Amino acid sequence: MKITRVSVYQVDLPLHEGTYKWSGGKSVEVFDSTVVQLETDAGVTGFGEVCPLGPFYLPSYAAGARAGMAELAPHLIGMDPTETTAVNRRLDAALKGHPYVKSAIDMACWDILGKVAGLPVCTLLGGRYGDDFVLYRAISQQSPEEMAANIVGYREQGYRRFQLKVGGDPDTDIARIRAASQVLEPGDKLIADANTGWLMHEAARVVRAVRDIDVYIEQPCASYEECLAIRRRTDHPFVMDESIDSVEVLLRGRADLAMDVVNLKISKLGGLTKARQARDLCASLGIAMTIEDAWGGDIVTAAISHLAHSTPPELLFTSTDFNSYVTVSTAEGAPQRENGRMSASQAPGLGITPRMEVLGDPVFVHNGA
């Protein structure tokens, strides 16, 4: 089997809530998502998606994803997409860094592999654990009272894990965490996610001020070293996210006991192949995980669901359902939230069928000519 054509699409994903806000005044109203289609000489087609959280979150941006794919497309023609490791080695040799660019391509290869094998991707990633898995809901940055009210509303939809977007003024963030904690019920989990937004002295103030509250502290500062310093000053359970962008840093974090939970974003690591490697390493080391991505629609959500559903449940801290945040559906068969939980499709591959009328015309096509 050989890849014969690479097509790339752009699609806007507006938010149900109108805007999504997090640390440093950052916000997004419409997400710019990129979908890649790989066609083969065997008539099997695979799809993948990458959707950066704007150009100011991780070192990634939507136009860069498409430019990078145009650079990589000629290197894909003639490759066997079912040989995912070989494809990844070719991509890494052709373009240094830029893992997010490669993520959707790798995702599409897994979609093809599953279809050829007649198996859902979660089976190929290690097997399906149970009937479903737990989700969290991100609480966009607002006033303390509004964020607490949103937690109450989302609990009515079945969520029990809430990621509170903080990382702003420390006094306001302390009030946000306290207001949120007051509406929690037994069994709920609260994560205060600063998204690198605090300086060290601010983070130190916050963790000291909320010492009496059962809350996870997530990525308080920009650098690994700063986060580690705050980790050593608090007894709160600690989550690392933005700093963990490779297996090498993950191993360093384990050696330093830098975190209790790690967030594994598929595109940050470069696709399902490398995310599975990091997931399996975390499982061997006993590190709990949130399985997710930077953002995305139906296709990214499907990929997340397969990686999450194939993760041992005692090590899966939580996962996410990005397609429920946006107003546009790009694929049929995508997993849907049910009472705060989700399950991966049992159909072959990712289990999705893109809505080509939504994707529209490709922004570019490469067929080796």
Rank of each mutant, 00 (worst) to 15 (best):
S7D: 07
V11S: 04
L15I: 06
H16N: 14
T19L: 14
K21S: 11
S23A: 13
K26M: 07
S33G: 08
T45L: 05
G48M: 04
G48P: 03
S60P: 10
S60D: 14
G64L: 11
H98V: 00
S103H: 01
D111E: 01
G114E: 00
V116R: 05
A117C: 12
G127E: 01
D131K: 09
D131S: 13
A138K: 11
A138S: 13
I139L: 13
S140M: 12
S143Q: 15
E146M: 14
E156M: 15
E156L: 12
G158R: 06
D171Q: 14
I174A: 08
I177S: 02
I191A: 12
A194L: 05
N195Y: 11
T196S: 13
G197V: 06
W198H: 08
M200C: 13
A203S: 05
A204C: 15
V215E: 10
Y224A: 12
E225N: 12
E225M: 12
L228G: 13
A229T: 07
S246R: 00
S246T: 00
L251R: 15
G253T: 12
M259A: 13
V261H: 04
V262W: 04
V262I: 08
L264H: 03
S267L: 04
R276E: 02
R276I: 00
T290R: 09
D293L: 02
W295N: 05
A303K: 00
A303T: 00
I304H: 00
L307P: 02
A308R: 01
P313F: 09
T318V: 08
T318P: 09
T318W: 05
T330C: 06
E338K: 09
S345D: 01
A347I: 08
V365L: 07
G368P: 08
